[in-house]
């Protein structure tokens, strides 16, 4: 079982990866969007970067986990998807999976992701370090409500 990072800590992954062929998915397995659309009571779903996160907006309270799969480190759509889901009120686990690198973890965190599958070739310790490389942020994001360009009165 691959470790995952959840809320800044190394954790065991209790979810099983989505399998397209399995329908309906067994208990404890993440559903593909197509599987989830057949049964919107399923608690965990994975989105691809060309899916529209708004599809989930009416069901955010029932979902325990939403994963976003990055097919390529340069596909930046997932960053906006994360913020969209958080701004729509999703409070559960928002997990990034796929082909990003540790140098992108802090950006993902700032966009609302709180869980990460380990990037290829990265140790858990290095990944944790990458989450907090920069400690000053100019702009508001999921982790910071007030932008720095608004000096406190």
């Amino acid at each position: 079982m691959q470790p995952v990072i959840i809320d800044g800590q190394v954790a065991k992954d209790f979810w099983l990866s989505a399998i397209e062929e399995q329908s309906p998915p067994e208990t404890g397995r993440i559903a593909t969007l197509a599987q989830w659309q057949l049964d919107t009571c399923l608690p965990a779903v994975i989105l691809q970067t060309d899916d529209n996160p708004e599809t989930l907006f009416d069901h955010l309270e029932q979902l325990a986990l939403i994963a976003v799969h990055f097919p390529d480190m340069n596909d930046g759509r997932g960053f906006s998807m994360g913020r969209a889901l958080r701004e729509a009120g999703f409070k559960g686990e928002l997990r990034a999976t796929g082909r990003y690198i540790r140098d992108q973890l802090q950006y993902l965190k700032r966009c609302g992701f709180n869980a990460f599958s380990l990037p290829r070739g990265t140790t858990p310790a290095a990944a944790l370090e990458s989450l907090n490389e920069i400690n000053i942020h100019y702009q508001a994001a999921h982790d910071l409500t007030e932008p720095l360009f608004k000096p406190l009165g």
Partner: peptide, 17 residues
């Protein structure tokens, strides 16, 4: 300058098309 600050290391827009 405001745009500079807003856009510098913006977490959402570092991997645009």
């Amino acid at each position: 300058e405001l745009i500079r600050q807003w856009s510098t290391l913006h977490p959402e827009f570092a991997f645009l098309p």
